[in-house]
């Protein structure tokens, strides 16, 4: 390619990157305008706080997924993992009530258990796929089934319910507010900021980009590819455990239907946000916006009679496809390229 040709090519790629960066934000603005037009209640403090709180679960998981996907991997097990960790937390806390009572200690130990399980489950996904040289898609498809059936087993096919008194202690983690902002939203914000710093400003994040772009180049650049990839799954597991910690006090229960399809929503949020599914390029803020968008769509459908709420999945699916199509930027490029 000649230097002139190169200049032309880079000019067009610069344009598409701008589009990539702004696209999800623009789409979110459009959704908010649409929501306001449909129903005045949309912009009310209560409704907005509701949207952001609900977006927090998927959003936190999706921040972890951004690392995995940027480094060229995929994790399908996050929904089952969330259900399993929820179940395990409830079982542990219910058992501890007998000895420690329904106080803060019980909840704290439950939280510690959640974090240990999240890191452990992530490490299993990462180590089996890297050391075992099995594709992450297969490994996490397997662990998805395993975690799901473990929670079904723990609940004996039914529902695990958290001890009523412990619920009282634990409640503020979901229902509480700080400076008028719901706790889950604050946690979401903190996870997103930490994720942004880690992915965009540290050597670790740079290595994730490199591995996702070309594993061979990473290997020839003295990067411990297996180690970094395993770490991305551990981060994913940690994010799932954080999401679970704020999810459990919401309903105070876990069953085999907890967290169903969360993996797909998380991946959707990541992709809408502009991260490339094949790896090598990831954006935490895009992911955050993606998660908020998905929740907002559901919310808007609740507020209007124009489209049935049962079509929520269809609208989300459509938006995912359109978002990726727009980001690719091919639609405006001429044949001669």
């Amino acid at each position: 390619m000649s230097s002139l040709e190169r200049r032309a090519a880079s000019a067009s790629s610069r344009f598409s990157i701008d589009f990539k960066a702004l696209g999800p934000f623009l789409a979110l603005v459009v959704l908010f305008v649409l929501g306001t037009a449909i129903n005045d209640a949309f912009l009310s403090g209560g409704n907005l706080s509701n949207i952001f709180t609900r977006a927090a679960f998927i959003g936190i998981i999706a921040v972890g997924a951004t690392f995995v996907i940027t480094a060229g991997g995929i994790d399908l097990s996050v929904g089952s993992m969330a259900a399993f960790i929820s179940g395990a937390m409830i079982v542990v806390m219910n058992t501890l009530v007998e000895t420690l009572g329904p106080g803060l200690e019980t909840v704290l130990i439950g939280i510690v258990v959640s974090i240990i399980l999240g890191i452990g489950a992530g490490a299993v996904n990462g180590l089996v796929s890297t050391k075992g040289k099995i594709e992450a898609f297969i490994v996490t498809l397997g662990t998805m089934g395993i975690y799901r059936s473990l929670v079904t087993y723990m609940a004996d096919g039914g529902t695990l319910s958290l001890d009523f008194e412990v619920r009282g202690t634990y409640r503020p983690v979901y229902y509480g507010e700080l400076l008028g902002i719901p706790v889950p939203v604050l946690v979401f914000l903190a996870v997103a900021i930490a994720g942004y710093v880690l992915l965009n400003m540290t050597p670790f994040g740079r290595k994730c980009f490199a591995i996702g772009s070309n594993e061979q180049v990473a290997r020839y650049s003295a990067i411990h590819v297996d180690r970094v990839k395993t770490m991305t799954y551990v981060i994913q597991g940690l994010c799932v455990s954080i999401a679970t910690i704020i999810y459990v006090p919401r309903l105070g229960s876990a069953s085999s239907s907890t967290g169903v399809l969360w993996e797909l929503e998380a991946i959707a949020a990541v992709i809408i946000g502009g991260t490339m599914l094949k790896g090598g390029y990831g954006r935490i803020w895009g992911t955050v916006v993606g998660a908020i968008m998905l929740t907002t769509i559901g919310n808007i459908l609740n507020l209007t009679d124009a489209i049935s709420n049962y079509l929520n999945g269809a609208v989300q699916g459509l938006i995912i496809i359109v978002a990726v199509f727009l980001q690719r930027g091919d639609w405006r490029r001429k044949k001669s390229k």
Partner: peptide, 23 residues
């Protein structure tokens, strides 16, 4: 195939092998 990250610009490519030198 093994030398450069073709989808990235020069800066990350230049520093990838000696990344610890940059913090």
């Amino acid at each position: 195939g093994s030398g450069l990250l073709l989808n990235m610009d020069m800066r990350p490519n230049l520093t990838l092998l000696a990344l610890e030198k940059f913090g």
